[in-house]
């Protein structure tokens, strides 16, 4: 449990960090809270030549409202900071999910940027951001681009992010009053990661049915995904239980020693149903 040798630099600014990543040509890795990277390094599964510590870059921290009403969450914002933030308190699904992520230390150190950059197929935050239709702002020394979260994840531990890019910010839609949100998960007891974790945002009932539904699922496929078939069914007027049965449509469901394909497929639907019901209950 001792990492292979590596060099360490503390970035003095975002530009400094980006320059260092650009010149390292893949041999360098950014470290934020270190909650995913360090365990991998200790197992010697990751062996960066250089760690570029971005952890103290104030420009990547904090939550604020953008002029258009959306909410910008700095990449270095920790779970604990998100939980306490007065703007984010509005998002029911964050309040559901964050207290169950890791432990106190993990929530004090782990960041939103690190969570999505790491692209663990069972991480909670990606499902939430999917259900919120978030956008990821990524910057390199060459350019800045905005990536819709729905096209961010490519596979297990794989995303569209380039080696020389850093996430600077995650943008959430401003809260709307006519939707409710919730997060429900069944955890793998040893790791605490989700066997199936589901974020749901539902609302805009027009008297005949739900006009808005977004469902993000983690732990089930090789990367977190939007359960489009569920959303369509809800908006199409199917019962929530019928809709939830589509939780894994088109997805190759993962299987491991904790949950095989059959069980995981089943509990994905159960969690979808529970998240939908809880989101709707929040509407009052």
């Amino acid at each position: 449990m001792i990492p292979a040798a590596f060099d360490y630099v503390r970035a003095t600014s975002l530009d400094d960090a980006l320059k260092r990543l650009a010149t390292a040509g893949g041999g360098a890795k950014a470290i934020a809270g270190g909650q995913s990277l360090l365990p991998l390094m200790k197992l010697r599964l990751a062996r960066p030549e250089t760690l570029v510590d971005i952890g103290r870059l104030a420009e990547l921290k904090g939550v604020h409202r953008l002029p258009d009403g959306r909410v910008a969450v700095g990449a270095l914002t920790t779970y604990d900071e998100m939980l306490r933030d007065p703007i984010l308190r509005h998002y029911g699904l964050l309040a559901d999910a964050i207290p169950n992520i890791g432990d106190v230390q993990v929530r004090n150190r782990g960041t939103i940027g690190g969570s999505i950059a790491h692209a663990d197929p069972a991480s909670d935050m990606p499902a939430i951001l999917l259900a919120l239709d978030a956008e990821v702002v990524a910057r390199s020394s060459r350019a800045e681009r905005v990536i819709p979260i729905t096209s961010f994840f490519e596979g297990a531990f794989a995303s569209v992010l380039h080696d020389d890019e850093l996430i600077t910010e995650v943008r959430l839609p401003g809260g709307r009053d006519d939707v409710g949100s919730a997060y429900r998960a069944i955890e793998q007891p040893a790791s605490g990661y989700s066997i199936a974790g589901v974020a749901a945002v539902v609302g805009a009932h027009d008297g005949t049915g739900w006009r808005y539904c977004a469902v993000g699922v983690t732990g089930v496929g090789d990367h977190p995904y939007r359960a489009a078939a569920v959303e369509k069914a809800v908006i199409g007027g199917e019962s929530l239980a019928q809709a939830a049965a589509h939780a894994t449509d088109g997805v190759t469901v993962a299987s491991d020693i904790h949950a095989d394909r059959e069980y995981r497929t089943h509990v994905a639907s159960v969690q979808v149903l529970r998240a939908l019901e809880a989101a709707i209950a929040r509407l009052g």
């Binding site: 793998q188 007891p189 040893a190 790791s191 020693i257 904790h258």
Partner: peptide
């Protein structure tokens, strides 16, 4: 050994 670490071997927690 598939349950090769505490990530995969579930020791009871007080809260359970």
């Amino acid at each position: 050994l598939l349950s090769g670490s505490m990530l995969d071997y579930a020791i009871p927690r007080a809260s359970w």
